[in-house]
């Protein structure tokens, strides 16, 4: 009895599994809690949230926040812009990253190590904000949607992921066979490589897409004068700032009491709206993830069963 029990408990696999489950459960709670908090807060009275009375589930249930969001036109304008940037931007990303990765994965490309080195150099060193801005300005790209779309079109990290995928999962023989059957490089890329690379395409699309969806700094700097082109995140940021503005304005002074009273009211609204906006802005990404999950799994499998 005793030995059986010991075996049961000290079985290596079981210990490993046990620790894994505990660790995963912890991570699960850590990631889930903020989401539930935001969701609950979006349905709660802002006073209850800011005073810390709302811990997990909605307190003083209200739909005021969402009602306000529905009426707040700029949120929907931002939404439309973000969807535009995400779809078109991701498409541009893929359209430049995949061919580049393919070219860099081919041994026939002369000087590919040098090119890759130049790419990687930019991962570690960049000109910084002001030179980049001057550059964009001299191309006439400041305050244009184009800049937001093409800025950072190639992420070197993603480029390397794709290159590694191409060179490790697609056997050389396949390219050779295609060549012998008369395919040129383009045909090889479009007919052989791309159809075999769905998993990596999906993964890259997701990386890029989420990047576009969450992006705000570039737009903040480069779209300062084009409010109608702002993505959702900038409007969200504005709402969050409004929530804090009354406080900082109060401390800085210089405002009349009537203005302060109004700003506090505005802050109340902002506090009410902000969690709702976060929910609204996150839902599309959450909705897409499960659909793409199978490709993630497939990607892992593809790597494993190869050879």
């Amino acid at each position: 009895m005793k030995t059986r029990k010991r075996n049961f408990w000290f079985n290596g696999d079981k210990v490993f599994m046990g620790i894994s489950y505990v660790a995963l459960a912890l991570v699960f709670v850590l990631t889930l809690y903020p989401m539930i908090f935001v969701l609950s807060a979006s349905f709660s009275d802002p006073g209850a949230v800011s005073s810390g009375e709302m811990v997990l589930f909605p307190k003083e249930f209200t739909l005021e926040g969402y009602r306000y969001i529905l009426k707040y036109n700029e949120i929907w304008l931002g939404y439309a812009n973000t969807i535009f940037y995400t779809l078109v931007g991701t498409f541009i990303n893929l359209a430049v990253t995949l061919p580049a990765a393919y070219a860099l994965s081919r041994k026939e490309l002369v000087g590919r190590n040098l090119i890759l080195f130049l790419f990687m150099f930019t991962m570690y060193f960049s000109g910084g904000l002001i030179p980049s801005y001057l550059n964009a300005n001299s191309f006439g790209l400041v305050n244009t949607r184009t800049f937001v779309l093409i800025n950072g079109a190639v992420s070197v990290y993603n480029l390397i992921v794709a290159r590694t995928f191409f060179s490790s999962t697609i056997p050389e023989q396949l390219h050779e066979a295609a060549r012998i059957d008369g395919a040129d490089m383009f045909k090889d890329f479009f007919k052989i490589v791309l159809p075999l690379s769905k998993p990596v395409i999906v993964v890259l699309a997701l990386y890029y897409g989420v990047g576009h969806w969450n992006e705000y700094f570039t737009s903040m700097i480069y779209l300062a004068k084009r409010r109608e082109a702002w993505p959702l995140q900038l409007f969200l940021k504005e709402i969050l700032i409004q929530g804090q503005f009354a406080e900082s304005a109060l401390m800085a002074g210089g405002l009349s009491t009537e203005e302060i009273a109004y700003l506090f009211k505005q802050a109340d609204t902002a506090n009410m709206v902000k969690y709702g906006v976060i929910v609204v802005s996150v839902v599309p990404m959450l909705a897409i993830y499960p659909w793409l999950q199978k490709y993630f799994a497939q990607g892992v499998m593809l790597g494993a069963v190869k050879e």
């Binding site: 498409f91 006439g140 790209l141 244009t144 184009t146 779309l149 791309l194």
Partner: peptide
């Protein structure tokens, strides 16, 4: 697969056209 290829090349062309048009317009 053929369809996929056609879609891809079409989209590529579109992307180029779009970014050029955007540049010109802005």
């Amino acid at each position: 697969k053929g369809n996929a290829k056609r879609v891809w090349s079409l989209l590529l062309v579109l992307a180029l056209a779009l970014s050029l048009a955007a540049c010109g317009g802005e």
